[in-house]
């Protein structure tokens, strides 16, 4: 008896897509658990937000960024 290849193709599709989606769903669940555990038990040491550079230089940087943004918006 000749096998119907199209039926075979659909079988492959069912199994393949099923595995891919299942794998990614498990991965998403694990990622969420892992993030929760990491944030709960191993929080990153809070880096102080005080700028290390002097304020004069900081102002220059801010000015440059503002100029770049406005230039970009004008396009």
């Amino acid at each position: 008896m000749e096998t119907n290849l199209i039926v075979e193709g659909f079988k492959f599709m069912g199994l393949g897509m099923g595995t891919v989606i299942l794998f990614l769903v498990i991965m998403i669940v694990c990622m969420n658990i892992m993030s929760y555990v990491v944030h709960k038990f191993f929080p990153e040491p809070q880096v102080s937000l005080e700028p290390a550079v002097n304020t004069a230089q900081n102002k220059k940087i801010v000015a440059a960024i503002t100029a770049a943004i406005s230039h970009h918006r004008q396009g």
Partner: peptide
Amino acid sequence: ALLGGAAQFGIFGTLVGAVA
């Protein structure tokens, strides 16, 4: 990540196309 999974439909859809 689900979006990356759904896009693999292209693979299996083409598989059906090739055997068809």
